[in-house]
C-alpha cells in the first residue's frame, strides 16, 4: 500500500514507536512520512538513534527517547538531540538510556513473549544508578546476580528491508541487526521495501524471512533507507551523514532543510537520492 496510508493507519499520537535499523536498512522514508503527518508526544525507541530521530526530536514530535547509543555514526554527536537534552529545545525530552546488550535482549524478550529480559550486564555501570528500569535478579540455581530490564513492546515498529514477495513475506539480508526481533516484539509492524518480486523460490532456506502474517503493512519505497544503505542495492551515503552535522548544528538551518527536503517532498523522492550510490550492475 502507499506509504502515506501505511503510516496513517498504524501510527497514532502518543504511541511508543521503534524505527529500527542497526546502521543498515534504516527506515528513513517512513520516518519522513511520520514527520509530514505531524505526530505528537511519541516515545521513540531505538538502539542507535541517528539522523531520523535527530529530525523527529528537532521537530518536537518526541516526549521520550529510549536508546543505547545516540550518535551520528562515523561523524560524532546528534545536535538536535543535544539541544533537547541540554536546553529543552524545542521541548524537553525524557530519556531512558540502556546498553546495546540490554536493548537487544529486551526486544528479544518481547518477541519471545516474556515480560523481562535477564542477562549478565551493567556490572559496575553508571546507567544502573540513573535508570530505574535497570534492576537485578538472583539466578534461582546458582545465586548469581543478573541484570533485568523490561521487555520492549512498541505499539508500532517500522523497518526497511530488501524485498517482499507477492504474498507479502519480507526478506532481510546483510547486517540484519535487530530487524526481525523488533517486528516480532511490536504490536504492529510496517515494512518499506526496495522491490516486490513474484516469489522467493531458489533462495537459501535459512535466510531471514518475516512471514506475511507477522507484518501489518508493506510499502514499496526504492531508496527508502537513504542515507543509510540497502545491502545489494545501494551504498551508504557517507557524505550525507557528514553534511547532517552542519545542518543540525543550527536551529534555523535545520528548519529550512526539513521544510525543503521532508515537508515539501514525498516518498517518491528517495529513488533519485540513491541513484549515484547504486553499484554498477
Amino acid at each position: 500500500m502507499p506509504l502515506e496510508r501505511a503510516v496513517a493507519e498504524n501510527l497514532k499520537d502518543g504511541d511508543t514507536v521503534a524505527f529500527e535499523g542497526f546502521t543498515h536498512l534504516i527506515p528513513t522514508a517512513a520516518a519522513h512520512e511520520a514527520i509530514r503527518q505531524g505526530f505528537k508526544d511519541l516515545t521513540l525507541v531505538r538502539m542507535t538513534p541517528d539522523l531520523i530521530y535527530d529530525q523527529m526530536i528537532g521537530m518536537g514530535m518526541a516526549k521520550k527517547l529510549v536508546f543505547s547509543y545516540a550518535g551520528n555514526p562515523g561523524v560524532g554527536l546528534l545536535r538536535r538531540l543535544r539541544d533537547a537534552v541540554e536546553n529543552g529545545y524545542p521541548r524537553p525530552l525524557e530519556i531512558e538510556e540502556h546498553s546495546h546488550a540490554a536493548m537487544a535482549n529486551a526486544y528479544e524478550a518481547s518477541a519471545a513473549g516474556l515480560p523481562c529480559a535477564i542477562f549478565r550486564g551493567y556490572r559496575g555501570a553508571g546507567l544502573a544508578e540513573v535508570n530505574p528500569n535497570i534492576r537485578s535478579v538472583a539466578c534461582p540455581f546458582t545465586g548469581e546476580t543478573l541484570a533485568a530490564v523490561p521487555a520492549l513492546r512498541p505499539d508500532v515498529a517500522f523497518i526497511h528491508a530488501q524485498k517482499a514477495n507477492r504474498r507479502g513475506d519480507v526478506l532481510v539480508e546483510g547486517i540484519i541487526g535487530i530487524q526481525k526481533e523488533v517486528v516480532l516484539a511490536a504490536k504492529r509492524a510496517v515494512v518499506t521495501v526496495e522491490e516486490v518480486v513474484d516469489d522467493f523460490a531458489g533462495l537459501h532456506p535459512n535466510l531471514t524471512v518475516l512471514p506475511s502474517w507477522t507484518v501489518t503493512a508493506i510499502a514499496v519505497v526504492p531508496g527508502g533507507s537513504h542515507p543509510s544503505y540497502a545491502h545489494g542495492y545501494y551504498d551508504r551515503d557517507n557524505a550525507a551523514y557528514l553534511e547532517w552535522d552542519r545542518i543540525a548544528a543550527d536551529r534555523e538551518t535545520f528548519r529550512a532543510w526539513m521544510q525543503e527536503n521532508v515537508l515539501e517532498k514525498g516518498a517518491d523522492a528517495f529513488a533519485a537520492r540513491v541513484a549515484h550510490l547504486r553499484k554498477a550492475a
Binding site: 555514526p73 528479544e108 542477562f119 546483510g174 547486517i175 540484519i176 541487526g177 535487530i178
Partner: peptide
Amino acid sequence: PLSIGDGELCETAVTTVSVPEMFRYWLQ
C-alpha cells in the same frame, strides 16, 4: 569502515549474525 555497520564488514565476514545473538552467544 566509517561506521560499525558498513556493508564491507558483512561482505568480507565469515558470518553475520543478529545483534541479540552477537551480544548473547558471542560476547556474554
